[in-house]
Amino acid sequence: MNPFQYTRSLAAAGAIQSVLKEPHAHFLAGGTNLIDLIKMGVVTPERLVDINPLPLKGIEKTATGLRLGALATNSEVADHPLVLQGYPLLSLAINAGASPQLRNMATVGGNMMQRTRCNYFFDTAMPCNKRSPGSGCGALEGINRMHAIFGASPACIAVNPSDMNVAMVALDAVVHVKGPKGERKIPFADFHRLPGDHPEKDNTLERGELIMAVDLPAPAFSQHVAYLKIRDRTSYAFALVSVAAALKMDGNMITDARLAMGGVAHKPWRLHAAETFLKGKTPGDDTFKQAAQIAMQGAKAYRYNQFKLTMAPNAILQALKTASA
């Protein structure tokens, strides 16, 4: 790791000011991704601003739902009774990611901020527009088995690696951020962005903005949920494809549906058209297959990830089967 300075922050405003002061200052939360990136030379900070002492760990009921403090750890969220009860999909998704130890360190905000696992991004000896804008995309003509099938650009075909994000986007979470210009809310679906010409930007945060909390709306999908993650080993691996599925049922009719995918795009990939299609339908393989087909519209694969065009719709079908069972 390059040498850097360290500031322990006790208040959000101070932390934000500390980061704004220096071009290469970063917030440090759980560190599970940032410290790794510094070790690999992908990030070379001059200062880390430790926000762990900030009072942002709470998980609290609000008038409209549940507020997750940005510093609540992944484990605290996944195991929280209110989450298990009202948002089991979130719990399932979080527990499908990383390992127990990492989930004990990683935070809600940090998980949202984690960078792609694309190996061209992590290896400073290879080109990557995300790490080093203008250097090219090594994955485009390289080993792109893990890469995007939706929303990619010629500049970047990396995917967002988070499982938590997939559930969050499906559940219509809202992100609260605080920055030099004050506070604002960002719908979760708008928090992460597609690479376009600026893959170096993972999200829509502005410099110095700090995630304070994530709000979940009132529980609406607490029963018929599934999180399916297909990966190269049974646990502790990133997704080839993952699917978050949540259904609201009235007898044998789907009255509302939420579907999102991980491992397929630069952001957690919400499947609105498939959701709309499912509303008013009776659960069944044919219905689910059609939904999956709708969800796959616009998918584009590269040399080594052609399989995702088969795996993704299969995973949607399987997740819907499990959720409706």
Binding site: Y6, G31, T32, I35, D36, S99, Q101, N104
Partner: peptide
């Protein structure tokens, strides 16, 4: 590198000593 910090298991390789 798993250790317990305040009773919770974590990976000590990704935790800065200062924190």
């Amino acid at each position: 590198c798993t250790v317990h910090v305040n009773g919770v298991r974590i990976n000590s390789c990704l935790s800065l000593a200062v924190t």
